[in-house]
Design a binder for these strands. Structure first.
Lengths: 348, 348
DNA sequence: ATTTAGCACTCTCCGGGCCTGAGTGCTAAA
DNA sequence: TTTAGCACTCAGGCCCGGAGAGTGCTAAAT
């Protein structure tokens, strides 16, 4: 008699194998191929029995009678939930990935681009990276330039040397010398402070009704900083790797392809999704119909947050078909998100 | 007897009809459908005779015996060359397109984005727009900020209110006060001057060996301006409208699709092409194999230059399948390029 | 010299029928 | 509880044959 294994455990094992096989071949998985994968420690008939159980539980389904089984969304979900606990990367992998960043990564932009590139290269799906939220960045220097009446160009340099500029419409005309005072005021008092922090500080000052001279600079300063934060919610999203799709069998289906292209051109939805996820720390997975946005109903999204000074500031992610190598994706995305955090920290 | 028409002219007429029909249906064109299109003023047999002539000339071909004819690259070329002379848009169309720009188009960026959007919406192909070359823009204001030793942030505001920033590595460390002098020097002397012009002026000054005080500011100024011009050759390219492709029948073919995606992700090639075309004024068309870059061998590119202050500064264009509605595309692109010129002029 | 009608020929595009192979479900035995 | 065996199902490949669309050619008409 064989060593006794928990029935649940073995059922799950079979499910994993089905998913593995289906992910790599895109062909419905037969009972026989599972037994082969298990080194014939179990007969195909037994696998078939297990399969009917898995089917009853809704984890797998048959595209048609007398075909193999394919995982359902909830099958993947089951698998992913199990996986989430035990994610680790081989040391060599870690070193390899970390090594990719050494070269000439000097700015946030470089990190973003590199990461997006790595995601798509390593995983062969579309890589998506969200810029750090301006609010959670720390100010190094503010420069104000008058462009024309009531219009000011604000150039922010963050501690991470990212340069961002915004054209701000003021509600009154401000002279150049006054503008300089405003910039000086901010630079003197708030160098190294988080930008959303600056916003609340200025609010306090203005509302506390400080004396005239301070108010004359704090008022416009607040106006500018708040506009900047406001404008930045058009969260820059960086996408790459659409062409990798071409390899996948899903690509044979024109409808699917069309779908994927639509997804890619709807950055707004991607941005919104990422934004909503921002507070959640770890890796998060949306599989097929779990997605609220209907565009994503036919694909899966894996995202992970990265941090700066210990605060969640952005996310990276992967968009691909539901038939996705979750194991690899979860591992890589999870690791890259940590890596990006440390690289950003390092840059400062 | 019919009114006698020049034989050449009528052959061309048939070619046009073949192209028209093929463009709209993507089905090989039969002799009968041509007669129908000509209101039966000519019999199908005659058309067939003409067709063999056209085939001998290499303008059309048969995908297989006993199928209709489809235009070849050189067939399209012939047609396009003829078309080029007589491009005009209906007044109503012109007004409609011009009207699209009225709203809140305030910056170059807005114009670029709007145009790209219009191209893809009007023509249902991918729209591509190249940013104005920094060299051909006119300086309104230069701001210099020291970031760290030997590293300066240069913010350029152009007469068109475009803001561009560049991080410039200097070959020696320059103090903040000195930097301010440099910026002042440039702003005093060159406000309203073309940036490439500034570059040559500074070169003259430095090489003429001016006296010490001038040289101390002109030297770094030159270094900065030149770096900026240098950096800008990564010509920003704006693309939009990939998803419109999904409608086209070419999309059924996975190979074709893959191809199109590759094209889209190879912005570098698109940029290079546009850059090379920059000096040429009017509309230019590349059809299929005429394209040097092998990626584009299966599609057509139509570009037209736009101007600023009478000088060619950028290009707009369309990328689509060789089976493209050239008549419409040429008209629209040509008109939009004029429109973009005048809008930019207006903005200043 | 052109144009047209007529006819034979070619080739693609279905749809149906047949067969094969893979895979399952069920049952009875181990 | 597992397994072997067997009957059943169904997609996919293949061949065939007819229909339809289109051409090329030739001979007659203009």
């Amino acid at each position: 008699m064989n060593i006794r294994i928990d029935k649940k455990e073995r059922n799950f094992q079979v499910l994993s194998h089905i998913i593995d096989l289906y992910v790599s071949t895109a062909i419905p998985v037969s009972s026989k191929s599972v037994t082969r994968k298990m080194d014939n420690t179990i007969s195909s008939a037994t696998v078939r029995n297990i399969m009917t159980e898995l089917e009853d539980s809704g984890y797998i389904e048959q595209p048609h009678t007398s075909a193999g089984r394919i995982p359902t969304d909830s099958g993947y979900r089951h698998y992913v939930d199990f996986l989430k606990g035990r994610l680790w990367l081989k040391k060599r992998e870690i070193e390899r990935l970390a090594g990719e960043y050494t070269d000439r990564i000097k700015s946030i932009k470089d990190v973003i681009e590199k990461t997006s590139f790595l995601i798509s290269r390593e995983l062969h799906y579309a890589g998506v990276v969200m810029w750090p939220n301006i609010g959670s960045l720390y100010l190094k220097h503010l420069e104000l330039v008058k462009i024309k009446a009531e219009t000011v160009l604000a150039v922010l340099i963050t501690m991470t040397n990212a340069v961002k500029n915004y054209i701000v419409k003021m509600n009154r005309d401000i002279g150049e010398t006054e503008l300089e005072k405003v910039a000086n005021f901010v630079n003197m008092n708030y160098e190294g402070t988080g930008i959303s922090r600056i916003s609340t500080c200025l609010k306090d000052i203005v509302e506390a009704g400080a004396d005239g001279t301070v108010l004359r600079v704090a008022g416009p300063a607040r106006e500018i900083i708040d506009s900047v934060v406001e404008m930045d919610i058009e969260n820059d999203i960086y996408c790459e790797g659409l062409d990798f799709f071409t390899g996948e069998p899903e690509f044979r289906d024109p409808d699917m392809t069309r779908h994927m292209l639509q997804i890619f051109s709807s950055r707004k939805e991607i941005g919104a999704l990422m934004q909503k996820e921002l507070p959640h720390k770890g890796v998060r997975v949306y599989i097929g119909k779990e997605n609220k946005f209907s565009v994503f109903r036919e694909c899966s999204i894996v995202t992970a947050g990265y941090e700066l000074y210990g605060k969640p500031t952005g996310r990276i992610g992967v968009i691909g078909p539901t038939r996705m190598d979750y194991c690899n994706v979860l591992r890589t995305v999870s690791y890259l998100s940590e890596l990006i955090s440390s690289k950003l920290e390092e840059l400062y």
